[in-house]
Each structure stands twice: as C-alpha cells, then as structure tokens.
Write a protein that binds this DNA or RNA. Structure first.
Length: 295
DNA sequence: TTGTGTTTTATTGCCTCC
DNA sequence: GGAGGCAATAAAACACAA
C-alpha cells in the first residue's frame, strides 16, 4: 500500500516536474540536431510510456536557486515537518516528495562528510598519541641504557671499594680536604655553599681534583641515577634531590667518625635499583594497545 | 568526441515509532 | 497499519582527460 503510494507519488513528481523550455534546450549537451534530439526524446518517452502507461519527463536537476533555497532550509533544520515540506515545495515549484527526497539525500551527504571529519580528528589524535608513545619509548631506552652503565660502575666500584684500604684512604683524604676548606672559609658562607654542595663543586676545584678523580668523579656521572633512587627509596629524607655525597660530606663534618659508603647507601635502598626504576617501564600492561593495531 | 569517474536525483525495501 | 527515516542502489546529468 505504502509502496503503491510512494510509486504513484514519485510518478506524479516526474510527470509534473517541468523545467522551462529554454532550460531544457540548454541542457542538451550532446550536440545532436534539434530534430534528431526531438526524435530521441519521443522514442524515450514512448518506451517509458509503453512500460508504465504514462508519458514521463526525464529526470532533471534542480536549478541553482532551488538548491540554494533548499540549502538555506537545511541549515535551519535538517529535518522536514510536513507543513514545512509543503510550503517549501510550493515556494520552489516542486513536488513535496522531491523536497523530501532532496532532504534525505542531503542528510546522507552530510553524514558522509561528518564521518570524514570525525575520521580526520581521530587520525590526528592517533598520530599525536603515537608520536608521544614513540618519544616515551626512546626516553625509556635511553634511561635503561644509563641505568645499565651506572649499575656496572656501581658493582665494579663495590667490588673494589669493599674494604679497599686504598679507597678508605682516598675517602679519608677527601673528608680532610673538605674539613680544611670548611674551617678556612667563613662559616655561613660555607653553609650556603654546602646547601648546593655536591661532589660536582669539589671536582671543579683544582685543589680537590685529585680526590675527585679517584672516587668522586665517577660518582658524579651517576648523580642523576642516585637522585632518582634516593628520591624513590628514601622517603624519610626531606631533601628529595639529595646527593649521597652531600650526605657523606655533611656528616663527615658533623661527625668525623662517619665513613661515607655511598655504595652501601644504594644497597640499603628499600628496593633495588631495578625495581625503583621499573615504574618507567612501558612493557607493562598494554593499556594503550588499542591504539596500535599494528602491534 | 568519447570513455570514464563523480555527483545528483529518485526508487526500493526494511525498520521504527506512534 | 500508516508515516517517515535510512541504507543500498539505479540511473541520469555532469565534469574532464585523452
């Protein structure tokens, strides 16, 4: 029943849809002679008439003005109420069904474009996220590499300095050196220096370079790692970025009997280096895997 | 001019809502 | 069950390169 209505409606639309004659002539783009074209049209119409029992017009495109008006209405509201449809059809000289079909097709085109836009946004988001992930991956590899080097140094030094008499004397000499400097300079000035003290400062100092070269300089390179590990392991420390040798030095001043053992401090961490730095691992639960279908 | 790809107009069949 | 929407599709109109 509905299909019958639809069919008769569309046939009516086709039958009644007539462009101005001059427009039709303009649209004869195939360049046939007028008589020949008329003959073809007649044949086409007769064929269609034979099939449907009606004389039909060929499908015509809407005029520019009609399309503009339809676009304007579509921008206001992309769905048509029946009253609006009838009014618009009257205004444009179209069948209501033609207006409805135009809106339907227009909604389809809009939806397609919307999908393309959404795709573009998602793709941009995905690309940014992937770039971010790649950068983090590189950063992680660099950190792991640094970590490996530092661990090697620590273990090597651990083997050497574990009760190495030579190192004991070096450390002792280092402490003496620092103490002398401390005494020689103004107390407050020295305290200020101590706040920012590191083996770094000392190693820059030519007078203490010998000591630094022996023990401290290498530790200097591992300063970053120590900071990270202390940060993670020593929650009781108020100085988050504390240098283990800063501890050593300051305690040496306060208590001459203290023998700094930086390696042991690392060993005394609440969890091993490996663990303390594993929070950087990207090999954990692949919560972002959805974004990387190629993996 | 013609072949071919794209756009526009229209149809069909199915689905949902009232 | 009718009205209207949507997806899939047909077919005409159009654009354009060769």
């Amino acid at each position: 029943m509905q299909q019958q209505l639809d069919s008769s409606d569309s046939l009516g639309a086709l039958i009644s849809f007539c462009q101005p004659k001059e427009k039709k002539e303009e649209q004869n783009t195939h360049g046939y002679g007028a008589e020949f074209q008329a003959m073809l049209d007649r044949i086409n119409q007769e064929d269609l008439g034979y099939e449907t029992g009606l004389i039909l017009e060929k499908r015509q495109r809407l005029s520019l003005e009609q399309v503009k008006e339809l676009e304007r209405n579509f921008e206001v509201e992309n769905r048509l109420e029946p009253e609006r449809k009838v009014k618009l059809a009257e205004d444009l000289g179209l069948q209501p069904r033609q207006v409805a079909i135009w809106f339907q097709n227009r909604r389809t085109r809009w939806k397609t474009k919307q999908l393309q836009r959404d795709y573009g946004v998602l793709k941009a988001s995905y690309d940014a996220l992937k770039l971010d992930c790649d950068n983090l991956q590189q950063e992680k590899e660099a950190l792991n590499s640094t970590l490996r080097e530092l661990k090697e140094k620590i273990y090597r030094k651990s083997a050497e300095s574990n009760h190495s008499a030579e190192e004991e004397s070096l450390i002792s000499e280092f402490n003496n050196n620092v103490s002398e400097q401390y005494k020689a300079s103004d107390l407050h000035e020295n305290k200020k220096n101590k706040a920012s003290f590191g083996v770094h400062e000392n190693s820059k100092d030519g007078s203490s370079g010998r000591v630094s070269n022996g023990v401290v300089k290498e530790e200097n390179e591992s300063n970053t790692m120590f900071s990270i590990c202390f940060n993670g392991a020593s929650s009781s420390s108020s100085n988050a970025m504390v240098d283990p040798f800063w501890f050593s030095e300051s305690r040496a001043v306060a208590d001459k009997t203290y023998q700094p053992q930086p390696v042991r401090m690392e060993e005394q961490s609440l969890f091993p280096i490996e663990e303390s730095c594993n929070f950087l691992s990207v090999d954990q639960a692949p919560t972002l895997r959805w974004y990387f279908p190629e993996q």
